[in-house]
Nucleic acid binder design. Structure first.
Length: 414
DNA sequence: TCTGGGGTCCTAGGACCC
DNA sequence: TCTGGGGTCCTAGGACCC
């Protein structure tokens, strides 16, 4: 049996752990640049707030006094690892699926009802984050069970689908667009053929599903029928791509500002590479104007650069990324976003006879920088600059309660 | 005025080769 | 009136996930 555990309204819950006064009150968390709502508390959901641009809910926010937070990924990342570490202690095999979700392998466990409740209870008690658990014979069904656990209080956070009757009932109550692997487009197409629930989807013939929705659709179809096709992946597969990009807090026209952003993104990619002990063979740099502004001239451009020697050296990666930027930057446009993508990754670096870089020395330098930097950022390259022109808008940022000494909360005893 | 960021997988179609 | 067939590799684009 598979379990899917999922933190309820994760970002909101993280904020509430340190702001218990907000329990029971409407809260929302914003995207980078505070432009978009990306997490909503149940109370705010009931007021009609959705994951959409903030300005669409200006009225509700004022009227109901909804508390907003800029996203604080340092805090969420740290809370996530606390949750995951508790889960790893309780279950042998776990696949961390996203910042707030994990699949659990229940092979060999009996009495899943009791064990499941013990898991959810322990996580919430030790971290303050409320969680829900769905259990079933496939990952896709466990996802569905999880939705029921979250939606209906009577389950007390744990829902198990462990017989045919429950499976069919659950599928009949699940709209097709809520199924893991069925997105907006495919749901719409299925609707056209009269398929609106997960159950109706499973009643179609396998060959039709295969023909219309390729092997991915067929896999979902099988999983819904209880045939497990997707296994727990304990060791995260090596990334095939590493990307860092951001929208700017405001539109930028100046090359120097954008080059500071590119240098910072490139350096962040290099960090991510070193963390997984991998090397870049090539990278892509891109810049965009704001495509929502139809009144302004648009310019979107990218360039791929092959690196002479596979590397994870920040200095080198930044150097090539900036070289790329020089090629694609055009004066006179108002840019809104840029980024660096490492497009080809390998596990080792093969030397090059004509290599002018002293790799051993650089390696040591990077190790020292990584050690000093730890979680925060102490050392950066000169090209990353100091101007804050391109930085995010984060007007409602909460303190880094768990990762910054000066932000740790004080408890006063009387 | 304000519109996230970071990933994956699959397919179709073109280029090229024999 | 006819213009092969099959294979590989690459890229762009579409779809999905959180």
């Amino acid at each position: 049996m598979f379990g899917l555990i999922d933190c309820n309204n994760f970002y909101v819950s993280c904020e509430r752990v340190f702001r218990p006064d907000l329990n029971g009150k409407p809260v929302a968390v914003l995207s980078n640049n505070d432009g978009y709502i990306i997490a909503v508390s149940n109370e705010a959901k009931h007021l009609g707030v959705k994951r959409k641009p903030v300005f669409e809910f200006k009225e509700e926010i004022e009227k109901y006094n909804i508390t907003l937070f800029s996203s604080n990924y340092t805090l969420y990342g740290d809370m996530s690892s606390r949750v995951m570490s508790i889960l790893s202690q309780m279950v042998q095999n776990i696949e961390i699926y996203s910042i707030d979700e994990a699949f659990l392998d229940f092979e060999g466990h009996n009495n899943l009802e009791t064990f499941g409740k013990e898991i959810t209870h322990t996580v919430t008690k030790n971290t303050g984050i409320p969680v829900s658990l769905g259990i079933a014979s496939t990952k896709t069904l466990a996802k569905i069970a999880n939705k029921f656990a979250k939606k209906h209080k009577a389950y007390h956070n744990v829902c198990i689908i462990d017989n045919e009757e429950k499976r069919i009932k659950a599928l009949q109550l699940t709209p097709i667009e809520d199924v893991w692997g069925i997105g907006r487009r495919i749901a719409k197409k299925l609707n056209l053929y009269g398929v609106t629930t997960a159950y109706e989807f499973t009643q179609q013939s396998q060959s039709w599903v295969r023909k219309m929705f390729t092997i991915t659709g067929e896999r979902t179809w099988k999983e819904l029928k209880g045939i497990a096709c997707i296994d727990i992946e304990e060791i995260p597969p090596q990334r095939k791509q590493i990307c860092t990009s951001r929208s700017f807090g405001k539109m930028l026209t100046d090359y120097d500002n954008i080059s500071e952003a590119i240098a910072t993104h490139a350096s962040s990619c290099a960090n991510k590479l070193r963390k997984q002990k991998a090397f870049a063979n090539s990278l892509m740099v891109f810049i965009h104007t704001n495509c929502f502004r139809e009144d302004l001239p648009q310019h979107c451009q990218n360039i791929v650069i092959d690196l002479p020697v596979a590397t994870n050296d920040s200095i080198e990666i930044v150097h090539y990324a900036l070289q790329g930027l020089k090629h694609i930057f055009v004066e006179g446009f108002q840019y809104k976003k840029c980024g660096v993508i490492i497009t080809e990754i390998s596990n080792h670096s093969q030397g090059n006879l004509f290599d002018a870089v002293d790799r051993d020395k650089r390696d040591t330098l990077m190790q020292i920088i990584d050690k000093l930097n730890g979680r925060g950022s102490v050392i950066k390259l000169a090209s990353q600059g100091n101007s804050k022109e391109w930085h995010l808008k984060q007007e409602q940022l909460s303190p880094r309660y768990t990762t910054n000494w000066s932000d740790v909360i004080e408890i006063k005893c009387r």
